[in-house]
Amino acid sequence: MTKNEEELLAGLRALAANETSVPPASLEAALLKQLKRKRVISWPLAAEILAAVAIIAIAIHSRPTSSAHDDFVAVPYSTPIGPNERAELVRVNVPVLALAQWGLQVSAFDPGQRVNADVVIGEDGLARAVRLISNP
């Protein structure tokens, strides 16, 4: 190692020791609040939701046209939530095109428009069911 390199490394070590910034304390509190706010759905409730989803999905598909849905629809090809698996409910703002990909039949919409939806997320972070909140 050359003298220049040694001096550079000494300078970098001094710079590291001199940098004592920490994130604001309010950030930890905000994250903990978010953690506690996270809605955890137990398996029995998730089972009830998915059962309702199945029934509603059948009903939806039997209707000739629809513009919006009030209940959960299972995401196509998603794995059912396991008996000991937790799920969470997350409200998101998504493009209507994404809803169409998830199986919701939304007619006469602007593809660029965004809507609010509740999404049931499995432990693996994958969406399992979706419910439209606002009409496009």
């Binding site: 003298k3 220049n4 001096e7 550079l8 000494a10 300078g11 970098l12 001094a14």
Partner: peptide
Amino acid sequence: ADPLGDLT
């Protein structure tokens, strides 16, 4: 080629 001086 010159040294960097005292970077600390």
